[in-house]
Amino acid sequence: MRRLLFYVRLWKGYMRIGFLILTQYPADTVIWIISMLLREASGFLGVVTIAAVAGGLGNWSIYEICLMFSLCAIVEAIGQAFFDNAWGIGHQVRMGRLDVMLVRPASPFIQLLGECFHFQALISMMVYVGLLVFSVLKMNLHVSGGMLLFLAEFLVCGTMINSGLYVIFNSLNFWLVQGNDIAVFVQTCREFAKYPLSVFPLLFRQFFTFVLPFGFVGYYPAAYLAGKMGASIVWQMPMAALCVGGIAFTMWHLGVGSYNSTGT
């Protein structure tokens, strides 16, 4: 219990630092927000234009696609806000900066995450939440308590899957020099999750369900909300999240265990 309180205090401290950095450089904050919105928008524009030309993709209407996209983007924004330093693992390992974290009396993983926050992402997240509300209204969905509960479940599980995969592949940096490039490639593959997976051949669908479960970050929850899928997703999603989380946890710990500094 005291340990937990300690971490709460630590996390609050890190958030304060992150916030101070944010206000220190206002121009950069604005650029970050724009860049985050644009980065997601480019893929969105592609699928929406194509869907508009074709009058929807398969049995997916344009608003259902918007819904899927917004789910996907919200989870990524949360990841960028709080778990973005997973992308810094490679740098920390090669610079030997992990030494400092290992000798401090707190979990190195928490310290790693605390080093870098992008609260700007929370502002761009508002745009995606707006899009989510818009598409739910346009789809004439009945907003019920169950649906809100499902969305809450999705936020937790989706973030765990999304950021967990980044942690897994960035942890490869403990052993490989190319860890970052593999992780970037995985992030590129995430693009597939922004489109209805039913468009792609079965092999791709299985790959994004069982190997890199990005399907749970957008396609499956959106399909459930749109009534295209049974309720089995309600327990499948946490299962996937636990698997990814477990592997990420193991990878990180194995990595830290085999870390032997740089000798400087």
Binding site: G46, V47, I50, A54, L57, G58, Q178, N180, D181, I182, V184, F185, T188, C189, E191, F192, Y195, V199, F200, P201
Partner: peptide, 22 residues
């Protein structure tokens, strides 16, 4: 590193190829 970059480009071609095929 470059090979992974090439793979990424390949993946994006595949995405748009299937979307357009639809």
């Amino acid at each position: 590193a470059f090979w992974f970059n090439v793979l990424g480009t390949g993946a994006s071609i595949v995405i748009y190829y299937f979307l357009w095929q639809f």
